[in-house]
Nucleic acid binder design. Structure first.
Lengths: 166, 166
DNA sequence: AGGTTCATGTAACCCGTTACATGATTTC
DNA sequence: GAAATCATGTAACGGGTTACATGAACCT
């Protein structure tokens, strides 16, 4: 893909919620190129308008799998759920279903460990909190509960898929 | 509060998921002070250890309410839900219940407008997507649905609360 | 001919992370 | 007296935002 292609993807799908600003994309591509994680070639064409197409190198693929394999931390759950979902979206293609299930189990375990803390905090502080603060906290708790349900049902889905393969 | 007090709050409650790093907090307080949104005074004490306590100025309070009053955009929903929750947590104390309900209605409206787009995307692209990608998208959709339910039930709660007051 | 889209880039600015530094006070 | 905690700060680095710039090709 070219930088412009990426811009269009980020601007239209908005899924990973990446920035579609050229000031983010082009410098990022150049950094990746300097680190040899991607390589860009000027597309040959009859026209004068140049278009630089990038592809992932073997080193880049290795870095990607390294990122995907990082253990799930409590901090990932609290502050970087978006990153976890992004890793997940790449995962079964790059690491296979078995490893993906392990990843989902890690997520479920971290959420299951964190939830009681939040509930404990709510239980002890609900009285002194203003309504909006309490609701904001409940919003968070319900979000984590939804995520936990999602992780568990996804694990089941993968296991069914795995059984089908055999 | 002093910078150190803030650090402790951010390190222990982790709710707004602010950074508790001194490299974030102290420069931020100095910036706010330079813009006269907070004012700091060295706490007088018999000890030599200094402790600088900050309080919000009237200009700071005005800036806060200005921030709280900003309209809810689609982009807020997609990329800055955390910010919206933070605003909400401050809101009824600073703007009152009626304005808070309006805020919740804006959030609900934006989510209700965005959800069909996501579902449409899923419906048309589900076939070509890998299982993990599809599930990641479903994760997002379920999250927004949970948020919409939360907003609606919170609105009801506030309206009941308002009726009690009268 | 003029506006839109394709396509890539740069520069100023802001700000968070990481890591280090400094000194006072309390605790064991 | 050593370790932990209180308390504040700075500097290098990375990277995103905003805004601007440039030019080709396409469409009407």
């Amino acid at each position: 893909m070219s930088g412009y292609d990426l811009r269009k993807v980020f601007a239209t799908t908005a899924m990973g919620s990446f920035s579609d600003s050229p000031g983010a994309i082009y410098p990022a591509l150049h950094r990746l190129e300097k680190r040899e994680l991607v390589s860009g070639t000027d597309e040959e064409s009859s026209s004068l308008r140049r278009r630089r197409v990038f592809s992932v190198t073997t080193a880049g693929l290795k870095a990607l799998t390294g990122w995907l394999e990082r253990p799930v931390t409590r901090d990932d759950i609290i502050r970087r759920m978006n990153d976890l979902m992004l890793r997940f979206a790449f995962m079964d293609g790059a690491l296979g279903m078995e490893r993906t299930v392990r990843f989902l189990n890690e997520i479920a375990a971290e959420i299951a460990a964190y939830l009681p803390e939040l509930k404990q905090y709510l239980a002890t502080h609900a009285e002194e909190m203003p309504l909006s603060g309490r609701l904001a906290l409940e919003f968070g708790i319900e979000g984590y509960e939804a995520q936990l349900r999602w992780a568990k049902s996804s694990i089941v889905l993968y296991q069914e898929e795995e059984r089908k393969r055999k």
